[in-house]
Structures are given as C-alpha cells and as structure tokens.
Amino acid sequence: MMAYIARRILYAIPILIGVNVLTFLLFFVLNSPDDMARMNLGQKRVTPEAVENWKQERGYHLPLLYNASVQGAARLTDTIFFQKSVKLFQFEFGSSDSGRDIGYDISQRMWPSLAIAVPVLLVGLLVNISYALLIAFFRATYIDFWSVVLCVVMMSISGLFYIIGGQYLVSKLLHLVPISGYDTGFNSIKFLILPAIIGVIGGIGSGTRWYRTLFLEEINKDYVRTARAKGLSERAVLFGHVLKNALIPILTGVVVVLPLLFMGSLITESFFGIPGLGSYTIDAINSQDFAIVRSMVFLGSVLYILGLLLTDISYTLVDPRVRLS
C-alpha cells in the first residue's frame, strides 16, 4: 500500500512538470512580459520606463530561461522560469501582481470556500441519493417518469438563473437573509445558508439522474435476482444489495472532487460576495492578475492529482475486488 502511494506520487511529478511547462509557455512565451505590462498599465502612451518599472517591481525583468549576466547557478536560478514556475513546486507562490502574498491569501480564503462547498457536497449527496433511491423503488411508474422529466428540466436551467432567482426571491423580496457578504464564526451562517441551498438545488437535476442510472444498472444484474430468489423484500434488496454496489461508483466519484473543494465555486462565491478562493480567482481574472491565475492553475492540478490518488485508495477500501498492485 505504501509502496503504491509512493509510486503514484512519483507518477504525479511528470504531470506537474507538464502543467508547469504549459503554464510557463502560456504566460511568458506566448506573450512577453512587456505585453503584460502594457496591458496592465493601460494601452495609451506607456513610456518604456513605466513598463520597465512595472516589470522590475514584479520580477518579470529577468530573462526567461538563461541569465547570461550573472555567474554560476544563478544563471539558471535568476530567471523567470526558475523564480516563477519552478518555485511553485515548493508551494512558494510569490506575490501577486498587485503586491500581495498569494500563499497567505490562499491560506486565508480557503476556509470560506470550504464552508460553502462542504455543506453543498454533503447535503447534495444525501438529497440526490435519497431521491434516486425513491425513483428506483418506483421504477417504470409515473413517479419515475415525471421525476426524470423534472430532473431534465432542472438540469436544463442555467446555474446562473438559480442564483439570480434565488437571490431575488429570498433576499430581495422576502428579506430572509442578506443578499451577499461574509462574516466570521457563527455569524457567517446567515450568509452561507442561501448559497448552500442554491448549490444543492442546482445539482439535483444532473445528480439524481446519474444516480438513478447507476441504481437501475445494478437492479438488472444477476445478483439482484438471487437476492429476490432468497425471498428478500424489495426494500431489503434495494438497501441491502443495490445500494451497497451502487455506492462504489458514487463514493469514488465524490472522492475525486474532495480536494478540489478547496478551490471553491467561482460563480456562487462571486455572486454572494464570499471571500473564498473562487471569488479570488474571479477577481484575479477580472483584474488580469497573472500571478494569481498561475498559482491557482498549479494548485488546481495538485489537488486534482491528489483526488485521483484518493480515488484509487478509496476503491480498495470500499470494493473488496480491488487490490492495489
């Protein structure tokens, strides 16, 4: 087991290098730092000095890959590639283009993101599985038919509409909770409850439909017939046999997104003004802060790979057929 994990972590390294090189190409080779500077300073009448100044302040003045003007190892380390890309491997994100410490920002903003993403995930899972079980129990009846129709309708509505509509209805018309904002500690609940509910509702359509398919796929398998031949009731078959088998893909599907919960939800957070990593990313995109976007790309890849690893491990925990080798 440990050897397996060690090997998976080793496998992750070339992938992270790939991500790193890709972002380097995208951010520094496709467009030169000069372009970025001009973009940031505004298009018209930018003096070369201002550009130089801007680059100097943010460390973009170094050569890309090889610095001939210094001696020894610094020839390689005093470069944009080393300073900006390689250092990401040590989780040194450096400072943003506006001068803030990205690492600190991330560690601060991670918690509001989790405070909203975790309840959405857990409650959503519970709601979707229960609803899907209900549909599976009443399969091939009108309840099944109309539930599927409802699911398709719900998943055809843009997530933006749930947010805008929910905000308007609950906050603006009914004045139940504040429209947006955030607070610390227990006070945050009144800010979190609406986005969490909307997140759950927005996920019901696709989630329930997917789980229903999983359940129905299991219901047609031979072992279910065996269970019925034992004289088990339909409920016992569903909960004792079908659910156990269907939970394997459900759980492993959840595990893969667990680490990504840290990244937060872009749209929800920015609509509700929650200072998480999602709105951090959006703000960075809108203000064209490349350092932050770069850091988030790398962080996202690391978390994704972590998710893959956790998925494999969770398989061995829930599925007796799988052994790591």
């Binding site: 398998k221 031979d222 072992y223 017939r225 065996t226 269970a227 019925r228 031949a229 034992k230 004289g231 088990l232 009731s233 046999h241 156990k244 088998n245 394997i248 829930v318 599925d319 007796p320 057929r321």
Partner: peptide, 24 residues
C-alpha cells in the same frame, strides 16, 4: 410469495460468477 421464495422453493442460476453479490 416472499416467504415461499427461498423458503419452500429455492433457486440457483447458471452464472455463479455474477449471481453472487460481489461486495458482501
């Protein structure tokens, strides 16, 4: 009928590989 199934009438099937629940 459930009492009869698996009670006075038992049944076994062709494919023992798939007829048992793999996770129990």
């Amino acid at each position: 009928m459930r009492r009869v199934r698996g009670g006075s009438m038992g049944m076994i099937f062709q494919e023992p590989m798939t007829s048992l629940n793999a996770v129990i």
